Amino acid sequence: MNGLRPYAVRFTVSASLWMTTTGDEDVIERKRRRGRLRAYGRQVWREAKTAGAPRVNRYMMLVTVGGRPESPVLAAETLKPLIDAGTDEALWPDDDPYHRVMTCYLRDPRPLPGGRAELFIWVIPLAPGVDPLARLLARVPGSKATLARATFGEDSWLTSNMRMTARERKAMQTRAMRACQGAWHASPGACCGVVCQVRYPDPRREYKGDPDNVAETATAMWGVGVMQGLLPASPGVFCFMLADGESEPKHHDLDMLAFTVPPDADWPRLLLGDA
């Protein structure tokens, strides 16, 4: 890794700017909040650079979310403009899946004052040959896993880049849940983590989206397992990465690997252990 070390940057977000993947903001309000978050994010990343944060090429991100009651993965909508701001400030060449190869969300259990959320974004440099999935699973030896797969057509595929009304987004999420009925067949247990791998229908690099842009579809798929009684409402860690290969034209695939984890798993320590 050329001597690069992981580092963390803290962001504090007010309730008036906070967004989730299941929020009901309209297109205009989402755009307004994204713009303000991106401007704020540029300031924070700029300060991090001044303090010595290095430019990285290939990296993982570990995002801890505190001060919010919902599952941390729902914060993906707030995180997106903050990551884009880091790209603006040239802390990495791009935040696409060929540079940001995995992003993991988990809860910060510390109590925080009400009204504000606190996110820590850990940037973990990775050498070219390091497989982020193998690196993650090596932290939980002996873990048992279950794999769920679903394919979504254009009428049930929802990403954060789509311009829709709140009603349209809710309808799309409902169709996404219908599309993955029957995907879950077994339970990994009450204490588990999940890696969501996204497969796109085009082999060209420039047509691969950011995997956590599909958090709305992913949480719909996870929710199906929750309603079946097979999954906990909030996994210990929720990760996104690109899947190998391509999906069929006009379709997208999600592969979800849910795996058992110790109830007291300290994910920041585990993932930063030999970084």
Rank of each mutant, 00 (worst) to 15 (best):
R68K: 06
L147A: 06
T219R: 14
V261W: 15
V237L: 15
H252A: 06
L62E: 08
P268T: 07
D212M: 13
L133N: 09
D244Y: 07
E248P: 01
L257A: 03
K31C: 02
H99E: 04
R34H: 15
P6V: 03
E248G: 01
P132H: 13
P188W: 10
A275P: 00
G114F: 14
T146C: 04
V63S: 02
V63I: 11
P81R: 05
G193S: 08
Y207E: 12
L91W: 13
T64I: 04
Q173F: 09
A134G: 13
D155T: 12
A138H: 11
D264C: 02
P93G: 05
R110C: 06
A51N: 08
V44I: 13
G142L: 01
R169D: 01
R33P: 03
H252T: 06
R68G: 00
R269E: 11
A166E: 05
E29V: 08
M172A: 02
N57I: 07
G86S: 00
P97H: 10
D95E: 05
E216S: 15
P111D: 06
R175N: 04
L270F: 09
G142D: 03
P97Y: 13
G153V: 05
L271A: 06
Q181A: 11
M172Y: 13
C196M: 11
S16Y: 12
M61Q: 03
V9M: 11
R204P: 01
T151Q: 03
A48F: 15
R33Q: 14
T174H: 11
G66N: 08
P188R: 08
R10H: 13
H185V: 01
A243P: 10
G223F: 10
S187Y: 10
A183F: 01
D84H: 06
D131S: 07
D266Y: 11
P211C: 11
R107I: 05
N57G: 00
V194D: 08
G229E: 13
P188L: 02
R10C: 03
F120G: 00
R58P: 03
V65K: 07
V63D: 00
T12Q: 12
